[in-house]
Amino acid sequence: MALTINLRYTGSNGNARKFAEEMEKTGTADAIRSEAGNLRYEYYFPMNDPETLLLIDSWESQEAIDAHHATPMMEKIAELREKYDLHMTVKRFVSIEENEADSKFIRK
């Protein structure tokens, strides 16, 4: 059972994009991707809102998320959020097995 966390960052003056660019440029995002239990760590930008950033962050288990949250990297991320004055909303999802009824709507 995987856990997916959608973090929506909002800012101003392009700061959400600058945050993501710094996370990528400094290797912080790649370091998170290489952590045990990380399944996905990807940034997306809404077409109609240049001041928002969506992070989709998926983990194998709650224990993997807890281990990630215990790393010194979290302090760096918090510093960058402050630097770029970003505000967040968070939604958490638990994956389930694919449903046969739903599969007819999924093009693979």
Rank of each mutant, 00 (worst) to 15 (best):
N48E: 15
K76G: 03
V94T: 15
Q62H: 14
H68S: 01
G14T: 09
H87A: 10
E42W: 03
Y9Q: 01
I56Y: 09
L3R: 07
M47Q: 12
R40H: 07
V90H: 12
A67S: 13
I77T: 11
D85K: 14
E97L: 08
S103L: 11
A67R: 08
I96K: 10
H69D: 11
M74T: 15
A70Q: 13
E60G: 04
E42Q: 08
L86N: 00
Y41W: 12
S58Y: 02
L3V: 10
A2Q: 10
T28V: 12
A16I: 05
Y43H: 11
R92Q: 13
G27P: 01
D57Q: 08
I77E: 06
E22I: 07
D85A: 12
E21D: 15
P46A: 08
K18M: 10
R40K: 14
L80K: 05
Y9F: 15
N15R: 04
T52Q: 08
R81G: 10
A29E: 01
K76D: 08
F19N: 01
Y41S: 00
W59I: 01
K25I: 06
S61Q: 06
R33V: 05
S103W: 04
H87D: 06
S103T: 12
G11N: 03
R33K: 08
G11C: 03
V94Q: 12
Y84G: 00
T4I: 09
V90C: 14
Y44R: 04
T28N: 07
E82G: 14
T10D: 06
R17I: 08
E24K: 15
Y9R: 05
P46V: 11
G27Q: 06
T28G: 09
M47E: 13
R8L: 12
H69P: 03
P72H: 09
A70V: 03
S34I: 05
L53K: 00
F93G: 01
N6W: 09
E79K: 14
T10W: 00
S12A: 14
M74F: 09
E82L: 09
E63V: 06
L7T: 10
N99E: 07
L55E: 05
S103A: 14
K108V: 07
F93R: 08
S58N: 03
I5M: 10
K108C: 01
K76W: 06
K104P: 02
E51T: 07
G14R: 06
H69Y: 13
D57T: 04
L86F: 02
S12W: 03
Q62T: 14
D66E: 11
F45G: 00
N6F: 13
A101D: 06
G37P: 00
I5V: 13
A31W: 02
A78C: 10
L7G: 10
M88L: 15
I5S: 05
E100D: 10
D49F: 04
E100R: 07
L53I: 00
A36L: 08
A78W: 13
T26E: 14
R33F: 01
M23F: 01
A29M: 11
R33H: 04
N6A: 14
N6M: 13
H87C: 04
E82Y: 07
A31E: 04
N15W: 00
M88I: 15
M74V: 15
N13T: 10
E22Q: 11
E42C: 04
N38H: 05
L54T: 04
N13Q: 11
M88T: 15
D57Y: 09
K83T: 09
G37D: 02
K76H: 15
K91A: 12
T52S: 12
I96S: 09
A2C: 06
T10M: 04
L53N: 04
